[in-house]
Design a protein around this nucleic acid. Structure first.
Lengths: 139, 139
DNA sequence: CTAATGTCACTCACCAACTTAGTAATCCAT
DNA sequence: ATGGATTACTAAGTTGGTGAGTGACATTAG
C-alpha cells in the first residue's frame, strides 16, 4: 500500500461524507442540495432530475415542492410542450449552493494552481484513471 | 479551470454516488454498508458506530439489528463492562464488503502501480492538499 | 384526421430509516 | 453508598423514499 493510494482512498472516503454534512448545514436534504447543484447548469423537468438523482419521479416531485416552498426554485410552464414543467433555480437557491460549495472549490483550486505543467499532466492522468475505475463500479 | 481541477471535481462527484450504488446492489442501506466497513477494522459498540455514521445511537441500534438479522454481524457481551455490547462482523459480512469493494480497490491500485516514484510524490502531495481542503468544509 | 401508445407531472397509500424522548442496567468517582 | 455518566435499547413521531395509478398532452401509425 503506497502513500498515494492511501491518500486516494482517504479522499474518496471524505468525498462520500461531504454532501450529507453540507446539506445538513444548509437545512436541506441531500437530494435537495444535489438537485440545486444540477439546476445551476440550467432548468430541467422533475423527471430529468429524478434520473440524475437516481430516484423515482414521485420522489423528485416532492423534492421540487420543497425547493419551491423554500424559495430556492420555481416551476414554470415549458414553452412548446404542455406536459412539461421547467424547474428554475432562483437567486436564493444559487446563493445557497455557492455559499456552501465555494470554500471547497476555492481550496481545491488553490492546490491545483500550485502545480507545474508537467505535474498537472501527471495528476490529471492519475485522476482520470481513478474516475474510470470507479465508473466501472457503477454499472 | 484546468483539466486536473475538472478531473478532481469529477472524482469527488462520482465518489459521492458510489456508496448508494454499492449498497443498493448489496441489498443494504448505506448506513449498513458503512457500518460493515467500519466493523472490518474490529468490533465496536453501537454508540461508537453511531458517532462514525453521524446518526443517533437509537438509529445505530436499528442498523445493528438489521445487520444481525441478515447474518452479517453478531452481538456479544463486552468482557469487563456489563453495559456494553460488542458488535462483531461475521464471515458473511466480511465477504459481502470485500466482494463489493474489491473491484474498486483493485482498479485504484492498478493505476497507482503505474506511477514512478517522483510522480507518486507529486500525486500524493496533491491528494493530501485536496483532503485538507475538504476537511475544512466538515467543521 | 383519428386512434393507439408514450411521456410528463403529479397524487395517494405505504414503508424504511431516521429523530427525540425516555428507561433500565452498569460503571465510576467521590 | 450514592449521584452522575455512559451504554443499549424501546416507543412514537417525522421525513423522504417507493409503487401504483391518474389526467393532460405529445407523437406515431393507420
Amino acid at each position: 500500500m503506497t502513500g498515494s493510494l492511501a491518500a486516494l482512498q482517504e479522499l474518496v472516503e471524505i468525498s462520500e461524507s461531504v454532501p450529507a454534512a453540507v446539506a445538513r448545514e444548509a437545512g436541506l436534504s441531500t437530494s435537495e442540495l444535489h438537485s440545486l447543484r444540477h439546476l445551476m447548469r440550467g432548468p430541467m423537468g422533475p423527471v430529468e432530475l429524478a434520473k440524475l438523482l437516481g430516484v423515482t419521479s414521485a420522489a423528485s416531485s416532492g423534492v421540487v415542492d420543497r425547493l419551491c416552498s423554500r424559495g430556492h426554485a420555481e416551476r414554470r410552464p415549458h414553452p412548446g410542450d404542455g406536459r412539461r414543467t421547467q424547474v428554475v433555480i432562483t437567486d436564493s437557491g444559487r446563493a445557497e449552493v455557492l455559499a456552501r460549495m465555494m470554500p471547497m472549490f476555492r481550496g481545491l483550486a488553490e492546490i491545483d494552481l500550485a502545480l507545474t505543467d508537467e505535474e498537472r499532466e501527471v495528476v490529471e492522468r492519475y485522476l482520470r484513471g481513478a474516475i474510470e475505475a470507479m465508473q466501472r463500479l457503477l454499472d
